[in-house]
């Protein structure tokens, strides 16, 4: 038998490999050091590559944890304390005199803005995507729209703020407030939601559409009852990711929402001016009063939690939907 060195080498490492598998993680390095001659090149490469990837992941996630640590180290006193605007009061009371109270105005404001943005942006983008994908012929118009949406999705949010101001506030005369701010956020959502919806629709095999048509379904019924339904988990995930993103936007709101230390009582006009969490965090952090510095950090924690809740909902909803239909 003419066995190559490599074969013999590989056999020799069977036990070694088992051992490596059993002692996961850090001990890999020891294995690498102690048995370097027994490991094949391929295995060494594998280990080096894995370490490299782990390092990358560490680099990617570190800023988030540093940020969280910073927010907690400053903001936690607001969450657990019992002074004015602390503990439950943080999320249940308005700022009040000298802004010593909570940030209820901003929580409500962000919720209202996101609801307006979703109510306007989602139907438009989903129907747009359905039209482009299911009804329009592939060609220049479709390519142009897709390209446009991709460009829009990459435009800095301050530009959307400026557009909201010049178009909605100045040109259409809507004034500042919840509707204007919500619409501006909707403009930001539309390109992303449209593209994610399109991607989800593209994943639906055309044989499903054909099966439906072959049963005598109209194009309309096929689109909504089969295609969109099959794509729903992907569509929902896209929507909720976009919601999570616009939730944290400050720039589009600076020129469009005004501000409010109380709650808005309308959708347009001066009584519709709203606060929002990002805007509030920004203005508190610019304020020299120490307790507002702290409040900015705790408000940021509140915003993080709201985004987290949307994220959990996103996961839950798309898993429920996936289980129901796939």
């Amino acid at each position: 038998m003419n066995r190559t060195d490599d074969e013999r080498e590989r056999e020799g490492t069977q036990a070694g490999r088992l051992w490596t598998v059993l002692s996961e993680g850090g001990t890999r390095l020891v294995a690498l050091g102690g048995r370097a001659r027994r490991l094949t090149r391929r295995e060494v490469k594998d280990i080096v590559f894995k370490l490299l990837v782990a390092l990358m992941v560490l680099i990617v996630v570190t800023p988030f944890f540093l940020l969280l640590a910073r927010l907690l180290s400053v903001g936690l006193q607001d969450l657990v304390g019992s002074g004015p605007g602390q503990g439950w009061e943080l999320i249940a009371t308005l700022p009040g005199a000298a802004l010593r109270g909570g940030v209820l105005n901003a929580i409500v404001g962000t919720t209202v803005l996101v609801l307006v943005a979703t109510a306007v942006g989602v139907p438009l983008s989903v129907m747009g995507a359905v039209y482009i994908n299911e009804y329009s012929r592939p060609g220049r118009v479709r390519t142009a729209i897709e390209f446009g949406a991709d460009v829009l999705a990459g435009i800095p949010s301050i530009v959307f703020g400026a557009f909201g101001f010049t178009f909605l506030v100045a040109y259409l005369g809507l004034g500042l407030g919840a509707l204007t701010g919500g619409l501006t956020l909707a403009f930001m959502m539309i390109p992303t939601v449209m593209r994610t919806t399109q991607e989800a629709l593209k994943q639906v095999p055309s044989s499903l559409r054909e099966a439906s048509l072959a049963l005598g379904a109209t194009k309309w019924a096929t689109t909504w009852r089969v295609t969109v339904r099959a794509a729903l988990p992907g569509i929902v995930t896209g929507i909720l990711l976009a919601v999570g993103r616009v939730m944290g936007e400050t720039a589009p709101l600076i020129f469009t929402t005004g501000n409010n230390l109380g709650l808005p009582t309308g959708l347009v006009g001066p009584e519709s001016w709203v606060a929002s969490l990002p805007f509030t965090i920004w203005s508190y952090i610019m304020d020299p009063r120490p307790y507002l510095q702290v409040r900015a950090h705790s408000a940021a924690l509140v915003l993080l939690m709201m985004v987290l809740i949307v994220d959990i909902l996103a996961n839950y909803a798309s898993r429920r939907l996936t289980r129901r239909i796939v």
Binding site: P205, S207, L208, A211, A214, L215, G216, R229, A230
Partner: peptide, 20 residues
Amino acid sequence: VYELRKRIGMVFQRPNPFPM
């Protein structure tokens, strides 16, 4: 054509049940 397709059933090469 919808009535026609209702009366002429079709089975495809790859199984394609609806995701339901």
